[in-house]
Write a protein that binds this DNA or RNA. Structure first.
Length: 285
DNA sequence: AAGAGGCCCTGATAGC
DNA sequence: TGCTATCAGGGCCTCT
């Protein structure tokens, strides 16, 4: 499901609703996620207070009293918050009503003071993992800078791309080079940059690099402002849809007209390293 | 070392 | 209706 903007939206929902709540009980229904949930998972979390919630790339970190709970939603994971007080009482609430709530693939549940947090993930590519403080930075050691950070700057990109033969689309998906961009936003960003997705990194000009830096940041920020992109079943943890999917310029617009003012090209779809890639082959060079 | 490819898993959809 | 094939927003591992 989710790329950086969607994870940021989930993080904001959690921040708004469950910060400072205590984990009263944890229920694990299926331990076979990307990493096996260890036997002591439930007991370790029991009675811990959520002191802080942060996001790194596409990961969310729950800061507990002496331990960190990191989770990732993989391709199909969703987080659902149910407010126990509002639930069943007022159908006008932004929170899930019982009919919206998926039941199959609800793998993990946290019972908090005022909320129930449910993790649902049909494909089980996501995970929940516990870390001590000293192990956390090691876990994130291969996660590169985010487009929103200052460290993702012209000289970093320029130096990284010297002699690199890989195409730019694959680099935008390479979490070690830049973290948080996924398959949708990679196509969208390259469209704004007017760069062809197959262009080799070493052949990018200084201007190309400037545009990559600029539009990566701009588009992710715009998507966050719109509540993320709701394709398939993405909703924030309160059950609300995002709307950035309505602003897509190329993603899933195969054979439609290019939306660049003076371009009369058509959007093409091509599989690059087995991932669908959308671009205008007239104005993206 | 860099880069390509396979694989983990279920569900929705298309085509016969 | 019911089969099979393909594809889906991620990332880890292995091989060359």
């Amino acid at each position: 499901m989710p790329e950086l903007p969607e994870i940021e939206i989930v993080k904001q929902s959690l921040d708004k609703n469950i910060k400072f709540e205590k984990i009263k009980k944890v229920v694990v229904r299926n331990r076979s996620l990307r990493f096996k949930i260890p036997k002591n998972f439930e007991i370790t979390l029991k009675n811990k207070k959520i002191k802080k919630i942060s996001r790194k790339s596409k990961y969310i970190v729950l800061h507990l009293e002496d331990i960190y709970c990191v989770f990732h939603l993989g391709m199909s994971g969703t987080i659902h918050l149910i407010n126990k007080k509002k639930y069943n009482k007022n159908t006008n609430t932004s929170f899930y009503s019982s009919s919206d709530l998926p039941i199959k693939h609800n793998h993990i549940e946290f019972l908090l003071n005022n909320y129930q947090l449910i993790y649902n993930d049909p494909r089980r590519f996501g995970f929940f993992k516990l870390f001590k403080k000293k192990d956390l930075s090691n876990f994130f050691k291969n996660v590169g800078p985010e487009p929103l950070n200052k460290s993702f700057n012209i000289s970093y990109i320029y130096n990284y791309f010297i002699n690199k033969k890989k195409n730019i689309k694959n680099f935008l998906l390479d979490q070690k080079f830049v973290s948080g961009i996924g398959n949708i936003y990679a196509s969208e960003i390259l469209f704004y940059c007017k760069i062809h997705p197959l262009k080799k990194a070493k052949n990018l000009t200084k201007l190309d690099i400037k545009k990559i830096k600029h539009f990566s940041k701009l588009i992710l920020n715009k998507a966050i402002k719109k509540g993320g992109s709701s394709i398939r079943n993405f909703k924030n943890a309160e059950g609300r849809n995002g709307s950035y999917q309505n602003q897509f310029k190329v993603y899933q617009r195969e054979n439609l007209n290019c939306l660049n003012g003076y371009c009369n090209g058509k959007i093409k779809k091509k599989f690059i390293s087995k991932r669908s890639t959308f671009f205008c082959n007239k104005c993206q060079k």
